[in-house]
């Protein structure tokens, strides 16, 4: 198979980027999308050119390193997978493929297709944890947690932090990412004591990082490689409302530019 690739090249965060066209030859249908890019890079290195920078690591869809907007869709045309799980047999021979990085103010481009996603880490540091010391935990079976509850928490917890939700959202919002973590911890009894502080702190951090707001279009859910439901965003909004009431001690409307935009 052969393909014409239009790939975004950009030298650094402050440089101007542009598309460069490459031809991919001798691609076999059983090659993964990243292996196809490896092939291009091997050729470039052979001629002393700098290869196309892109991120990848586990190549089995769990580490969340790989990204790429392929023909306008984060992680490419298939649903429920990451770019590294995409195989070339999915494309028709001779096709033209456009590859862009995640584009968001909060994700500055480091080089070519590599973006800096540390904003997501900073949101997690703001409150995405349970403050519990190592040692001295009670027996795991002391807390009984219903199967349904555990499954819901697990649904939310499967987020791999790839940022596709941000990439797909027309507002580059990280609501689904935050919603997944907040819902995971708020669903479990262990996470309850800190739930009000957590949701407020994480949303505040999200604002500060320059993500947009939720327009309830659910593009995030549609591209999420782990199929995390936008229902968790409603849950996040509910948690936020609840936190506003709990924190102020009286029923009032919390102000947040992010929990909205109908």
């Amino acid at each position: 198979m052969t393909f014409t690739l239009k790939i975004w090249r950009q030298n650094g965060p402050h440089e101007r980027g542009r598309f460069v066209t490459y031809e991919a030859y001798d691609v076999s249908p059983g090659m993964s999308f990243l292996e196809m890019l490896d092939g291009i890079n091997q050729r470039l290195i052979g001629t002393g050119e700098e290869p196309v920078a892109f991120e990848q690591d586990c190549r089995e869809g769990i580490c969340g390193s790989c990204s790429l907007v392929i023909n306008g869709i984060p992680h490419g045309p298939d649903q429920g997978i990451t770019t590294c799980q995409l195989y070339m047999r999915r494309f028709s021979d001779g096709a033209s493929i456009t590859i862009e990085p995640w584009r968001a103010n909060a994700f500055p481009i480091l080089k070519d297709l590599v973006v800096d996603r540390s904003a997501l880490d900073r949101i997690m540091q703001a409150g995405g944890y349970i403050s519990v010391n190592t040692g001295g935990a009670v027996d795991g079976n002391v807390l009984l947690i219903g199967k349904d509850q555990a499954e819901t928490a697990m649904d939310a917890a499967s987020c791999i932090g790839c940022g596709a939700c941000v990439a797909a959202c027309k507002n580059a919002s990280a609501m689904l990412f935050v919603a997944a973590k907040v819902s995971h911890l708020a669903t479990l009894p262990q996470g309850r004591p800190e739930r009000a502080r957590r949701v407020s702190a994480m949303l505040k951090a999200m604002d500060q990082e320059g993500f947009g707001s939720c327009g309830n279009q659910y593009e995030c859910e549609a591209v999420c490689p782990k199929g995390i439901s936008a229902r968790f965003i409603a849950n996040l909004n509910r948690e936020y409302l609840r936190a506003g009431i709990v924190e102020s001690g009286c029923p009032s409307e919390p102000e947040s530019p992010h929990a909205e935009s109908a």
Binding site: F19, V69, N71, G72, I73, Q79, T98, E100, R103, A104, N105, A106, A168, K170, N171, A172, S173, G210, F211, G212, S213, G215, N216, Q217, Y218, E219, E221, A222, V223, P257, E260, S261
Partner: peptide, 27 residues
């Protein structure tokens, strides 16, 4: 105010952007 903020959240638009789920109404 929000749409201005949202515009700032993505300074450079995608060259190709395909929607998967967003309805015409929402867009």
């Amino acid at each position: 105010q929000l749409s201005m903020q949202n515009r700032r959240a993505r300074p450079l638009e995608y060259t190709i952007h395909r929607y998967r789920k967003a309805s015409i109404a929402s867009r």
